[in-house]
Amino acid sequence: MKVQLFVLILFFSSASVIALIAYYVFRSSQPTTTNKESVKDPIKKRGIFLFIWFFILAVIFSVTLPKSPYYIFTDETPNQVVYVAARQFFFMLANEPIEPNVPKMEKIEVPVNKTVEFRVTSFDVNHGFAIYNERSELVTQTQAMPGYVNKLRWKFKEPGNYKIFCLEYCGAGHQLMQSSFVVK
């Protein structure tokens, strides 16, 4: 299951549980419900609850952390490097390094199921570099920050025409910034 769907379901189910608990607690305080008793020994209950919550968080933390982008595909030599430089309001993609003041835009093709490294920077303000697949799902992203190069590694599992959108607000043309490349 893709991450987005998973988190949406996770969110909606937790929100429903919270809403139900809230409603239950609220109902228990109505004059009409007589059989409820208020919480006994709250300090101990609180301790147990805190412990459970801490435990859940610790588990999620240790499971998710290794999946962070700084740790994935790190022990491989990428098959291809793509250089990306963002400007208000377009992206330059090239197979060779791009120098400021020397615009360079090339048609990019990258291999499927092989590691690709994007070296992303910006020549003016902060931009985002987000890759969308053919179903318009966000696959991965990094920021394009002036003065720095971020290396984003990815392995594309499906061939196709991938789109790039800007995901950091960069001015009135922000929503127009896009580019694309082909995965073969």
Partner: peptide, 9 residues
């Protein structure tokens, strides 16, 4: 972080 990569912004 591993969710943020597809939810950020």
């Amino acid at each position: 972080i591993s969710n943020n990569i597809v939810l950020h912004n």
